[in-house]
Amino acid sequence: MAHFDDIYEIAADGHGIITAAQARESGVTTGEMTRWCNDGRLIRRGHGVYKLSRWVPTPYDSFAEAVALAGDGAYLWGDAVLSMHGLALVDPAAVTVATPRRVRRRLPAWVRLVPAPKGCSPTFYEGIPSQSVADALRACNGSVMPERLLEATDEARSKGLVTEKEHRALKEELA
């Protein structure tokens, strides 16, 4: 039972999601993970990704799960970042995730992968690796209405998601 308590703590920090790699680091065997799936404590969501079966959902769960399913080095990208923060009235059908390497595993239809540009370093929002809000606003230029992006820029500034300098630069770029 002590191992499951460790798993629960890790998953609680990850919006109910735990990867097999995180479980191995905490000393949990593959057999234990399989047993907990059979017992109904965990739900296998994809290759090496598990979700707690008893978890109160949060608005960030699907974003955390999409990044975990894409694998190491993956992070939220573009419209997914805006959606996570409730900016620009975007509600994409798929969560866009950037990844620095090729992903061969089969992913659900609601996860869309894009190649991560070289030199882009992700930040973290709510514990989820993500493109910065300023960069996400720039990435959505052309795919989201300009008026919405300008409003989202102001809203992001009021929420403290972009600095004053980034705000001024975005207003010029998106106008």
Rank of each mutant, 00 (worst) to 15 (best):
M1W: 10
A2N: 08
F4T: 02
D5Y: 07
I7H: 01
I7S: 00
E9W: 03
I10M: 13
I10A: 10
I10S: 05
D13K: 14
D13M: 10
G14Q: 14
I17Y: 04
I18Y: 01
A21Q: 12
A21E: 15
A21T: 11
A21I: 04
Q22A: 14
A23V: 08
R24I: 09
E25T: 11
G27S: 09
G27H: 07
V28N: 07
V28C: 12
V28W: 11
V28P: 06
T29L: 10
G31C: 09
M33L: 15
M33I: 15
T34P: 00
T34A: 14
R35K: 12
C37M: 08
N38R: 15
N38V: 04
D39W: 10
G40V: 10
G40D: 10
R44D: 04
G46N: 06
G48A: 09
K51N: 10
K51M: 14
R54D: 13
W55L: 03
V56P: 03
P57S: 13
T58K: 14
T58I: 04
Y60A: 14
S62P: 02
A64W: 07
V67T: 07
V67K: 01
A68C: 08
A68D: 04
L69S: 08
D72L: 09
D72Q: 13
D72Y: 10
D72M: 05
A74G: 11
Y75C: 07
Y75P: 00
L76Q: 02
G78W: 02
D79N: 11
D79Q: 15
D79S: 15
A80T: 06
A80M: 06
A80S: 15
V81P: 01
H85L: 04
G86Q: 05
A88V: 02
A88S: 08
V90N: 00
V90K: 00
V90I: 03
V90D: 00
P92K: 01
A93L: 12
A98M: 09
A98I: 13
A98L: 10
T99L: 05
P100T: 05
P100D: 07
P100C: 09
R101Y: 09
R102C: 05
V103Y: 07
R105C: 11
P108Q: 09
P108F: 05
P108R: 07
A109R: 12
V111P: 05
R112V: 00
L113C: 10
G119N: 11
G119Y: 05
C120R: 12
T123P: 01
T123G: 07
F124N: 06
F124G: 00
E126K: 13
G127K: 06
P129Y: 07
P129Q: 08
S132H: 02
A134P: 03
D135E: 12
A136P: 02
L137G: 03
G142T: 02
S143H: 03
V144G: 07
M145K: 15
M145Y: 08
P146D: 09
E147S: 15
R148T: 03
L150R: 11
E151W: 11
E151R: 14
A152F: 03
D154Q: 12
R157N: 05
L161H: 01
L161G: 01
E164V: 13
K165Q: 14
K165L: 08
E166T: 05
E166Y: 02
H167P: 01
H167T: 06
E172T: 09
L174W: 10
L174A: 05
A175N: 14
